[in-house]
Write a protein that binds this DNA or RNA. Structure first.
Lengths: 143, 143
DNA sequence: GCTATTGCGTTAGTGGCACTAACGATGTAA
DNA sequence: TTACATCGTTAGTGCCACTAACGCAATAGC
């Protein structure tokens, strides 16, 4: 990409794709060291900050599709980080709740993520990082 | 994603992923109407702005992997937008060059892309768009 | 001139992510 | 009770970034 035409270098959609790929590389490899991936983190955050939930509600909280969430919960349950128990009040539902191990893993992932962002955002100053986040929030969650 | 925990909403790597997905949706569907996809655009820009090139050099200019470029050139050639001719000076190489139809398609894609970005970046002011682009450039092409 | 290395285009395949379709089972409303 | 909606689940699609390995052609070192 050395000789990339100048025109191409400032195409916003392309920049977003490249930046996201870069972020994915950092985050995937960082989480992999902790036997996790980013969806695990999303689910653990949602459970930690808003308490136990059905899979449907967890999907709503995290933006992970119901269909993909099945595998995520499977993986988290295998590792003993969450528990999947049938909801007695509604037999269609599972209640997903954090275990103690899950809470510990959450703390580890949170710390790892801070380090990863330090690496990812290294070219930006603190003020620029805030700016970028604000702009992205505006873009992704408009209004 | 209504009840997404506040903590999750400002994770930079996540925001970049969401923004890129949003951009991909807009750009894929927009280019699809012109029987193209974003890689076609990248290749056409590179050929238009820097002239004919081998596939290897085109890969370098666009950031598209050599292996993926094969299909892109196939698709462009099928549509009569580029020509793939053996390089007489180096029989390992193909020289890829724009056809007249390719130049016309490039103009169409360029115009379509402007409209797509208008849609994608609608929540941002002109100044904010410039800011975002500058920050992403800094992030993606540091130094 | 021969050989080893490097570069070329190509094929095949991987894994993550976003997303759709359809299913059986269970709940809720008309 | 019949119709409809929701739940978790399975399967599958398409794009993207990336890797591995191939045969062939060119080049560099001896």
């Amino acid at each position: 990409m050395e000789k990339t035409p100048a025109r191409l270098r400032r195409v916003p959609s392309r920049l977003l794709g490249l930046a996201a790929a870069q972020a994915d590389r950092v985050v995937n490899s960082g989480f992999a060291e902790l036997d996790a991936r980013k969806w695990h983190y999303s689910a653990l955050v949602a459970l930690h900050d808003s308490g136990p939930a059905s899979q449907a509600e967890l999907s709503d909280r995290t933006g992970i599709y119901r269909s993909d969430l099945v595998a995520v919960i499977n993986e988290l349950a295998e590792r003993g980080l969450v528990e999947r128990t049938p909801d007695p009040d509604d037999r269609r539902r599972n209640v997903i709740s954090l275990t103690e191990a899950g809470r510990e893993q959450f703390v580890r992932l949170e710390a790892a993520l801070v380090a990863m962002h330090e690496e990812l955002l290294a070219p930006l100053t603190e003020a620029e990082r805030e700016q970028l986040i604000d702009l992205l929030v505006k873009l992704v969650f408009p209004q």
